[in-house]
Amino acid sequence: MALEQPDFGTVGGPLAVQALDVRKAFRDHAVLRDLSLEMRPSEFVALLGRSGSGKSTFLRVLGALDAEVEGHIRVPRRRAVVFQDPRLMPWLSVLRNVTLGLPQTQETRQRGLATLAEVGLHDRAQAWPRTLSGGEAQRVALARAMVREPQLLLLDEPFGALDALTRIRMHALLKDLYQRHRPAVLLVTHDVDEAILLADRVLVLTEGRISLSAPVEVPAPRSRSDPRFAALRRRLLSELGVDAD
């Protein structure tokens, strides 16, 4: 079975992520089936898939949130995860949420404030998380991830719960943060446009294995009106089982 699957996910050179023949099953239902993925340092990869395709499961495996899995997996030590919900501690200030898990020193505090400034929330450092809007809370979650200078940033549908206008602003913010810090990014999403707008490479996960790997060759600034954008979009949607027309 494994031999029939082409190695869509593998690349050459130095790696930020190496996952070979990853298998996972819940009881007798296979969630990940001989999935292989390699990512270069500073590579931005979007992972598309229908619900139940195993994309979040795979992200949790890379994020060390799920150890019950077979296969060869290597990830950097410095990782950070942003979930769909912000998961801020409501009883800690915004700044303290950002510096969670770091040694509590003056230097950490300064770094936290600087990162909050990067996401435009410098003035909300002392606010309670529950006073923030959904978009602001997710920006704090991004700051909490970036303050650790991760070598691998794992994003699990981070904008899925936001409204369309906020999502556009978050795309710009994420692009900005990515260009400044250059971590390897794995973005799990079901939004095809989001994937094409942000990623260097788009993967489609179908029934636990990568069924399509496509480099995004749309020059910046990427625009939906670009015919290459439309072509890739159509190809990805059809791989996801949606007829674009």
Binding site: G63, A64, L65, R79, A80, V81, F83, D85, R87, M89, L100, G101, L102, R144, R148
Partner: peptide, 10 residues
Amino acid sequence: SLVEAARTFG
């Protein structure tokens, strides 16, 4: 989910 998030941040 908060405990899990905290764990991922070391």
